[in-house]
Nucleic acid binder design. Structure first.
Lengths: 244, 244
DNA sequence: TATTGCCGTCCCGCTATTTGGAACGCAAGT
DNA sequence: ACTTGCGTTCCAAATAGCGGGACGGCAATA
């Protein structure tokens, strides 16, 4: 506990942090919280219950306070910021190398969301605004986001998909996917998987553009560059985790 | 933002949470914080800076506020509570099945700490109190906690160890380790690895007892039960993560 | 059974903390 | 040069937070 020597400028926040810090080392009853934090009993109670209402703290089966699920939810958001920070320069390189638009997609529920995008400054290009939600039943990124999921989820998604289970077997084998006019007429794309520190596929990186340039076999043109970018990001995430 | 309808009883905490909630969707400048939270600018500034002093918030390269590393640290502690909640019943089963004391160890720095223990009610048994710190250079749990670490760390640890690199190769192959009188005279033990959701070994589960009962080959008696318990816990952690 | 001690929870008068309008300095754009 | 918007700081007023005291419940002991 080193809050005794530092005030953040907001006394209530300092006291609240002392409660969270106390719970970092394990579950605590109110009496233990009082002992650890040095706060008056009603104060410790009031702050712990307030934190509980915000789900930053919860109670275990014995009524003791423990750190709550909201911390994990916020921590996940931290992880996403880190993905974007590490991935954006690599995305820009991929755009410049291929001369096409590049995006990163993550799955959210039944859709995929564009979480980062880089596109050429001019010319015919496929624009996907950051934040836009696209369906999971069409497109190379959807294939990549689906290919490593559990078989039940794959089976359910394939019911309405423009691609087949055989496509996904191929995606898993060669680690890239392509689509031609599948999600949007006239647009072709190539995608590859980005894996998180634990090895699970957490995102897809794609290049997309007009069929006229990418041809009916866009993988032949860009699969290597897209895979290489995906692997760089995956590696960067792994190194960032190991250094932390 | 649904804090408008709920007061936790501590207004400053509600406002502070609204800042964290706002940053959950991505980096924000102070002006954006003001817009999202509806707080007055000096209030938003004061709370964000206070959170920054507590490392719950930090700033990116453009000076925007983003969620900070303390969230991940606290979130790790949440994960440990979950390990204990899921693992304890399985630990009790292992004790009853083998008739020996059972413990779960985690590595902390250069020691291993007993984070959970279950022992027979009476008779000759090996007691390891929860919280006790044991060395990493002897014992089957130490072997298990070391076997999957990076090679440099293994090499350093082996300098003072009672076991060899060859022992660790065996541990990695068959997924259990045994020790006989290695850490404490007259005590034998068998351990197996518990893996977290990302597949990394995060803890070791052990049974230990007198050599008279466990013999000089305790693995022959109990390796299967210990591996089975470890796999149950690993699976429970995986399912808990997937369900979240 | 009665007593004691400890726990968690609530009340309310007091004051210390929080608040936000105003001001300042800086940077960017016209 | 002037304007606008940003981030940061100041300080008087208001109120939110504080904690001593009280209460009820529970467990242990005589």
């Amino acid at each position: 506990m080193d809050n005794s020597s530092s005030s953040s400028g907001v006394g209530v926040l300092d006291k609240t942090m002392s409660v969270l810090d106390a719970l970092e080392s394990g579950p605590a009853s109110l009496a233990q919280l009082v002992q650890i934090t040095g706060l008056a009993r009603p104060t410790a109670h009031r702050l712990a219950v307030a934190l509980e209402r915000h789900r930053m703290v919860t109670r275990d089966s014995r009524g003791r306070f423990v750190l709550g699920p909201r911390l994990g939810e916020l921590s996940i958001a931290t992880g996403e910021d880190r993905l974007l920070a590490l991935a954006t320069p690599i995305l820009v390189q991929l755009r410049d190398l291929t001369g096409e638009s590049a995006q990163i997609y993550r799955r959210q529920g039944d859709v995929r969301v564009c979480v980062a995008a880089a596109e050429p400054a001019s010319g015919l290009r496929d624009t996907v605004p950051v934040g836009s939600e696209l369906p999971m039943n069409a497109g190379s990124a959807a294939q990549v986001l689906l290919a490593w999921e559990d078989s039940e989820r794959i089976r359910r998604s394939l019911r309405s998909a423009h691609f087949t289970a055989q496509s996904l077997v191929q995606v898993r084998r060669r680690r890239w996917a392509q689509s031609v006019g599948e999600r949007e007429q006239g647009v072709a794309s190539v995608s590859a998987p980005i894996a998180g520190p634990g090895g699970r596929v957490i995102a897809a990186i794609s290049v997309s553009g007009p069929i006229e340039r990418l041809t009916r076999s866009p993988g032949r043109l860009h699969a290597q560059a897209v895979i290489s970018a995906a692997e760089k990001i995956t590696e960067a995430l792994h190194n960032h985790e190991a250094g932390g």
